[in-house]
Amino acid sequence: MARRNSSLGLFGRFGRSGDLRQLDRALRSVDLHPSMVPEAVKLTVVNLLKDDAIGAEPAPQSYRSAAELLAYCMIGAEGFAGANDTALALQVEERIERAMAQGDNMDAQLVMVVMVAKVIQPSVVEHFALTRETD
């Protein structure tokens, strides 16, 4: 079965696809306004989630998980902990550390997406000593 494509909408006539709306809701739930995330980043994230899905569509919690990581990377540790809570910030930090140790997993791919898009908080790059291997 072919994967369903995402849609940004067109001239306000055709609506955004459900997967992008779901990611937007997840971003809001971690206090990152969706308009702060470039559409290209959101499309890439949704496609990564679809590629990683076990069934035909990603599980609803996968959007929230991706949003947590994106928000942390984009607003930094202090901003994320202030908007959410310190325990969640520590969990996301552990996810990033594991992702960098393991290499090619979903979390590592999500971190790479925000790095390549140049929307990652410099303090996050410094804290985790992140580098782009494609440079």
Rank of each mutant, 00 (worst) to 15 (best):
G15Q: 10
G15I: 06
G15A: 11
G15D: 12
R16F: 14
R16P: 06
S17H: 04
S17G: 11
G18R: 14
G18K: 04
G18N: 11
R21L: 03
R21D: 11
R21V: 13
R21K: 06
Q22Y: 13
Q22G: 05
Q22S: 07
L23F: 01
L23C: 03
D24H: 04
R28W: 07
R28G: 06
S29I: 04
S29M: 05
V30F: 06
V30N: 06
D31K: 12
H33E: 15
P34C: 10
S35V: 14
S35I: 09
M36K: 09
V37C: 06
E39Q: 12
A40K: 01
V41G: 03
K42V: 06
L43C: 10
L43D: 08
T44L: 03
T44N: 08
V46H: 00
V46L: 00
V46P: 00
L48S: 11
L48I: 08
L49A: 12
L49P: 10
K50H: 08
D51L: 02
D52H: 06
A53C: 11
A53R: 02
I54K: 09
I54W: 13
G55M: 11
G55H: 05
A56F: 15
A56I: 11
P58W: 03
A59L: 02
A59T: 00
A59N: 03
P60N: 01
Y63C: 05
S65C: 08
A67R: 03
E68P: 07
E68A: 10
L69Y: 00
L69F: 02
L70T: 03
L70A: 04
L70G: 08
A71N: 13
A71P: 11
A71Y: 03
Y72D: 11
M74Y: 00
M74F: 12
I75L: 09
I75A: 06
G76T: 05
A77H: 05
A77F: 15
E78H: 05
E78T: 08
G79K: 13
G79W: 07
F80S: 11
F80W: 01
F80A: 01
G82H: 12
G82R: 07
G82F: 04
A83I: 10
